[in-house]
Design a protein around this nucleic acid. Sequence first.
RNA 1: GGAGAAAUGGCAGAGUGGUCGAAUGCGGCAGUCUUGAAAACUGUUGAGGGUCACACCUCCGGGGGUUCGAAUCCCUCUUUCUCCGCCA
Length: 423
Amino acid sequence: MLQVPFIRENKDLVIAGLAKRNIDAASMIQDVISFDEDRRRIQTELDSLLAESNTLSKEIGNLYKSGEAQKANLLKERTGQIKETTKALNESLNNKIEALTELLYKIPNVPNEIVSQGSTEDDNEEVYKEGNIPVLPENALPHWELAKKYDIIDFELGNKITGAGFPVYKGKGAKLQRALITYFLDKNTEAGYTEYQLPLLVNEASGFGTGQLPDKEGQMYHVTEDNLYLIPTAEVPGTNIFRDVLLNESDLPIGITGYTPCFRREAGSYGAHVRGLNRLHQFDKVEIIRVEHPDNSYKALDEMVEHVKGILKELKLPYRILRLCGGDTSFASALTYDFEVFSTAQNRWLEISSVSNFETFQANRLKLRFKNSDGKNELAHTLNGSSLALPRVLAGILENYQTKNGIVIPDVLQKYTGFSKID
RNA sequence: GGAGAAAUGGCAGAGUGGUCGAAUGCGGCAGUCUUGAAAACUGUUGAGGGUCACACCUCCGGGGGUUCGAAUCCCUCUUUCUCCGCCA
């Protein structure tokens, strides 16, 4: 959520920024400003009446004490009037605040100046590319065929137990997945992130805190009986650790990592692009989350990007990094880099990580602040990134490491899997 | 699931109708002392709104009520703890 004073003072900048998301925000922003002006006007009026009422109450108390009940009763008439007026004012004040908040919830973050205008993923800019695309044996298979051939992932079984998008990993497939999770967590903790195990269901307040609610309500599985949501990413429980928290400046930076399954309804996704592991309702992911001083958050973003690069380099997977255009940058993010691994057998790029700086957008909703060197409470910056999303990394490994005689396990993973080949 | 107790500032913890935004301790900050640090001592220190700055207003888990006046009384919701039951 953007801060009202920021909008007030940077109206044109905000409108221009949102235009990069292809949003004509001029009238919304104007509404924010005028709602806020109304709010302050009503508040001032209300406050001065309350001040009068407070003074009178004290006088009444004193009059009773000195036995002048008659005089006191006279004053009570005035306080009675004030009470009626303040009740009405209070109501219209609340209406204004509600209208303002509702509007603010709908306004996405202002993209960083480096972000380009654009509407779809075709407008994203490739900023980095590394790794060689392997030459595969003849008759190379896509991962869903490999999964069947080596009996390591059973999609049909998942269909039976739950439904589409809930695959069952078995044997060496399950082990490889577990090896990847452990490997990622080890890399993250080595880099200074503290490992957490987080709840997989969150309440409404947490959903609002990171921005999934009210915007993306339909993307999350909702347990209505208890009004809880299955997490779409560890970002939600992980970042909400810091909801309503006041940190000391010396606590920063904070880095945490966690492995969680993620649940996404993916309403409205169809077709060949959702085959196999490409798009699932339940998948595993290891996440990194940082809380940073505003002066350092972009340095932190670079560090996170470098960190993910390091992992992919070790896995020897061909990948590229995209800087997302305005239209493709998520609601709460100011700047996002996507990592994509090349799926050789499918001949397409698969997104495996998304690293974002939210600046104060989430912190404002979360009330995540730190006491700065001036002793003032200031909103912190939050960031997060996947390191990494499992299914597509798995798909990338299966496809890129396939040989005539089976699938070779990348060197760095062998001490985690305990085997060097799937055949 | 049943019974009872509780929710107060960064944390702990007093406070049962006005003088309470709130004792005290810890923590934080500043200073004295010290070559430096620690300890000790002194001072200072809640949040939000509002204002050029003051004034002023709001906030004692959330919401509602009683009263001229509520942290304090009433209703309600939520959460936590204790005991019993169940249980990986």
